[in-house]
Computed example of a mutant assay.
Amino acid sequence: MTSRYTLFLCALILAAFNLRPGITSISPVLQGITRDLGMSSTSASLLTSIPLLCIGFCSLFAGRLAHRYQSEKIITLFIGCIGIATFLRFFTNSPWYLLLTSLLIGAGIGIVSPLISGFIKRYFPTSVAPMIGVYSTSMVVGASISIGMTTPLQHWFHDSWKIGLGFWCVLALIAIPLWYTVIRHPYTAKQETVQTQPASLPLQNKQAWLLTSFVGIVILLFYCFTAWLPAIVEEKGYAASYAGMIGTISMIAQLPATLLLPVLLRVIPGRRFWITFFTLSEIAGLAVLCFTDITPIVASVCLGIGGGGLVSLTLLLPIDKTNSAMEASTWSAMTQAIGYMIGAIGPIVIGLLYDYTGSFVPTLYLLIAVGFVVIVLGWKLTQPESSQLEEQTVYQT
């Protein structure tokens, strides 16, 4: 049983490694992409927004696929899809080609992500919160490595951003053999009741809709600064290499929040407190960029801590509300489907505003206002009389 537990844990980590580099590796080389392919800021923003839209749309089908086929097989198949689309970036020759690879990567992430929630619910039923921490941290590590290494890879290979982007297909090559082993040796100690009908999305549940709205605004805020933080720092007069480093620091700063979230929830179980704390951290980072000349490192740390904590909570809350792996998958599918579609609007709006105004300052004002919306939604979501989120706070490690 110990060896199987280790197998499932490693599979979880390697799957998570594949869920961010296809999006985050774009940011460090965005200037080179726009220059070489002749893209405007608005069109370049689609390289982030299109994957988010695809994540949202494809999440709708994750539950049905998991019901019809073994969920582990579906996860393996779509990790392969992410790897193939990333590999195709070696051969980029036009904006449309690059956007197509972004679409395929988003589709793969959209299917895999909600099924991972069900995987955690099924295989780690007594340690959900710690496994969410492992899952979130692994995604952050994958994102941090891709942001930090894409530019050096570009320089090592004759200033080719195509190689810098395509290199990350190696993560899928590592993950797929391990997931094939999971398929051959599934966990059988805990069997769930077999369902004759696929679990439907909780479209009639008010809490599900409130949670979906919260997740959407959190994702919008997160991917706005993920996509545009280096460019914002460059506008303040810093070199491109320094701006890229700031993006990496922001990703690394997410690690404490994701790693320590289970511990933090045991110390202060209330979701409301941590939603407020992490959101105020993001607002503080945006305010530093907007209103001060303090080094952007301070802003990047605040944004990283806040973003990492909030995204981890969005992964935990659907599992909090459900009683089975299939139900967890459908709640995650709904929150991701609509939430990521909401989130996809953000980078496009930032690109449009920049093209129109020639400055990122108005966008920073907008993002600060969005931060306060997150707090309002979070407080409404965690009202004791209308939510069970704060009542289900005991997790065994």
Rank of each mutant, 00 (worst) to 15 (best):
M1R: 07
S3R: 14
R4C: 00
L12C: 02
L14S: 12
A15F: 01
A16M: 04
L19V: 11
L19F: 08
P21G: 09
I23Q: 12
S25G: 04
L30D: 02
L30V: 08
D36P: 00
L37K: 03
S40L: 03
C54S: 13
I55M: 15
L60F: 15
F61C: 08
H67T: 01
H67Y: 13
R68D: 10
Y69F: 15
K73I: 03
L77W: 12
I79Y: 02
I79D: 02
I79E: 06
G80H: 09
A85N: 06
R89A: 07
R89Q: 13
F90D: 11
N93W: 14
T101V: 02
L104C: 10
I105A: 09
G106F: 04
G106S: 05
A107S: 12
I109Y: 06
G110W: 11
I111Q: 00
I111E: 01
V112Q: 06
S113R: 07
F124I: 00
P125W: 01
M131V: 00
G133Q: 08
Y135I: 01
T137A: 14
I147S: 07
M149T: 15
T150W: 10
T150I: 03
W168E: 08
C169I: 10
L173V: 15
P177N: 05
W179Y: 05
V182Y: 01
R184C: 08
E192G: 00
P198G: 06
Q204K: 12
K206D: 00
W209H: 11
L210P: 00
L211T: 11
L221G: 07
W228N: 10
W228F: 13
L229G: 12
P230H: 09
I232K: 03
I232V: 14
Y238Q: 09
A240D: 10
Y242A: 07
Y242S: 10
Y242R: 04
Y242H: 08
M245N: 14
M245Y: 14
I246A: 10
G247A: 09
G247I: 10
G247L: 12
P262W: 11
V263E: 13
L265C: 06
R266F: 02
V267F: 14
V267W: 15
I268G: 04
G270D: 14
R272V: 07
W274V: 03
T279C: 12
S281V: 11
I283R: 09
I294D: 08
P296L: 10
I297C: 12
V301Y: 11
I305S: 05
I305A: 10
G306A: 12
L310A: 08
L315F: 15
P318E: 07
D320F: 05
S324W: 03
S329A: 13
W331L: 13
S332G: 03
Q336S: 11
Q336T: 02
A337Q: 04
A337P: 03
A337Y: 06
Y340F: 14
A344W: 11
I345R: 00
I345T: 13
G346N: 07
V349F: 08
I350F: 13
G351S: 05
D355V: 05
G358C: 06
S359A: 12
F360E: 06
I368G: 10
I368F: 03
G371S: 07
V376T: 11
L377N: 01
G378T: 05
L381T: 05
L381E: 00
Q383W: 03
S386K: 13
E390A: 13
E390W: 01
E391W: 05
V394H: 13
Y395K: 03
